[in-house]
């Protein structure tokens, strides 16, 4: 048993040991600070610091296991305009609303983070690019299905997504990986927002299936030739 799990016990008295009380308080403070250092206070998502540390770890895991790490960068569309129209308080409400959508639409092992401002990032351990793209599309659909009330007005907020994966054979830094996903996000925004951009060439192409009708015609024509 981990000694941290044992309730603290004073060897001399069962009641009102000041040292124990102090230690308990320090422990709580440690826990609060740990959360504070890893989380974004507004949204409750992980913060930039934790994102960088975790991405580093997950990329190392990819190199060890061969399973690629997915990464999605997200930008809420026209957020500045929304802030200007409805005020910062409502803007913050929108950020919280979006964080809930993130939490509700991801796998339990995924790590949603607030990257800064209206930018978000998700680390998806052990995922293929096609699956990561699906996850992003699911979030995009989730936004569409859940309009938000701001100052008694019901509005729809969309987002732009850049999706990439890190493969075990790649020799790039955390920063370079983020930059790559960020440029895909930039692509999504410059193509008119509210879309998911990824590197299409990177998705393993499933050969286009030849249908039964096509096969039948190929075979029947070919056998007719052979018989004639």
């Amino acid at each position: 048993m981990d000694h941290h799990d044992k309730p603290l016990q004073c060897p001399y008295t069962n009641n009102g040991c000041p040292a124990i009380a102090e230690i308990k308080q320090l422990k709580q403070e440690c826990e609060r600070l740990r959360k504070l250092s890893q989380h974004d206070p507004l949204t409750g998502l992980f913060n930039f610091n934790h994102l960088m540390n975790t991405l580093e770890t997950e990329m190392e895991r990819t190199r060890r296991t061969g399973l690629s790490t997915g990464f999605i960068m997200i930008d809420l569309d026209h957020f500045k305009r929304l802030n200007d129209t409805f005020g910062h308080e409502e803007g913050n409400k929108a950020l919280k609303w979006f964080s809930d959508i993130l939490r509700n639409n991801l796998r339990r092992i995924d790590i949603p983070c607030r990257y800064g401002g209206e930018e978000f990032a998700i680390i998806l351990p052990g995922i293929r690019l096609s699956q990561a793209v699906q996850a992003a599309e699911r979030l995009r659909a989730g936004l569409k299905d859940s309009p938000i009330q701001l100052n008694d007005k019901t509005i729809n907020i969309s987002a732009s997504f850049g999706v990439d994966t890190y493969a075990s054979t790649e020799d790039i830094s955390v920063e370079a990986f983020i930059k790559r996903a960020d440029s895909l996000l930039f692509q999504a925004k410059s193509k008119g927002r509210n879309r998911v951009c990824y590197d299409k060439q990177k998705i393993t192409v499933v050969p286009t299936e030849v249908t039964t009708e096509e096969k039948d015609l190929l075979f029947s024509l070919r056998y007719r030739d052979r018989l004639s």
């Binding site: 050969p207 286009t208 096509e214 190929l218 075979f219």
Partner: peptide, 20 residues
């Protein structure tokens, strides 16, 4: 080659390059 299977494979790659 003129084999029916080769014909199907050729058709499959044509179709894939065409769609991609």
């Amino acid at each position: 080659t003129p084999d029916p299977t080769s014909l199907t494979d050729a058709y499959a790659i044509i179709k894939t390059i065409f769609t991609q």
